[in-house]
Design a protein around this nucleic acid. Structure first.
Lengths: 156, 156
DNA sequence: TATTGTTATACTCTATAACTATA
DNA sequence: TATAGTTATAGAGTATAACAATA
């Protein structure tokens, strides 16, 4: 029996030697798992990954402008508008005016927004902790540092 | 000057202590970079990430069925149909019939498909090698293994 | 009954251009 | 001229239900 046949004889799993060499392939597959878990976790708070990320960033960074928030989230300003609209309509954040620059908004979380954020973060912490329970503390730290350093090294 | 003010005084970059603790956040940001580079690389071959991945898997695994391919790509069978349609219309692959199971297709690459695949893989190897040039060989291996182990540990 | 491939559909995310109001 | 936010729009990815043919 050849290697290929042996691989195919395992019903569910087989590998591609070619794809296995690409970091991007492994990143995507791993991220799929995390993303699915995160989406499930956020359902009870009526949040999606993007609305959750935006809310956390606004809570953590008072008076953030939409442009800076979009940059922090790696999305286009245009696409952020509906996200901020949604959070504002739910009264989780407010668009304050900046006295010194009347073009920009200063985004701030409401009390209700901070409360929801706190609960959602706690839930995500718990879920992620469970999701990565098989990974050693050392491997986790290394993973975060490697990904973070890589991403920062690529910024324009 | 507080820490918050210090962070905000750096025009482009600031951190969220909350999000920085989540592996998923770092995965997404890192994957964004890889995905953008990959898309750019594949443009000249008229491939996208999904059509590229499907083509490589079909080349590497002759007689693959659509169901197995979808599972390997972590997407729904339904969403794979248009991807396979596209590759078939471009005559990069063929849908052969399986004599022993007339429900299923056996996907196989054409000569033209194998040629394009080879060129695309070479280009992606070159681009990814450049993209991760700042990362040590050791860190790369560890990253791949960590992501791969994690993903495998989560399979249902 | 279960599985393979398919269609239809709806939702989310992403990317771009063009506009307004301010700077 | 440039920037902040906005609108409109099109493309791409994802998720689900339902169906025909076959097992």
């Amino acid at each position: 029996m050849t290697n290929i046949e042996a691989q195919h004889s395992r019903a569910d799993s087989f590998n591609s030697e070619t794809l296995d060499r690409f970091i991007g392939y492994h990143m995507k597959r791993a991220f799929n798992v995390v993303q699915a878990d995160l989406s499930r976790t956020l359902t009870e708070f009526d949040l999606r990954m993007l609305t959750y990320t935006a809310l956390v960033l606004i809570v953590d960074n008072p008076n953030l402008s939409q442009s800076k928030l979009a940059a922090a989230m790696d999305i286009e300003r245009a696409n952020l508008v509906v996200i901020v609209d949604e959070l504002e309509q739910r009264e989780l954040i407010v668009r304050d005016r900046v006295p010194t620059d009347r073009r920009a908004y200063a985004l701030n979380a409401t009390l209700s927004g901070r409360r929801l954020c706190k609960k959602a973060v706690a839930a995500v912490v718990a879920h992620e902790s469970k999701l990565f329970s098989a990974m050693s503390k050392k491997a986790k730290t290394m993973l975060i540092n490697t990904l973070s350093d890589f991403q920062k090294s690529q910024r324009v």
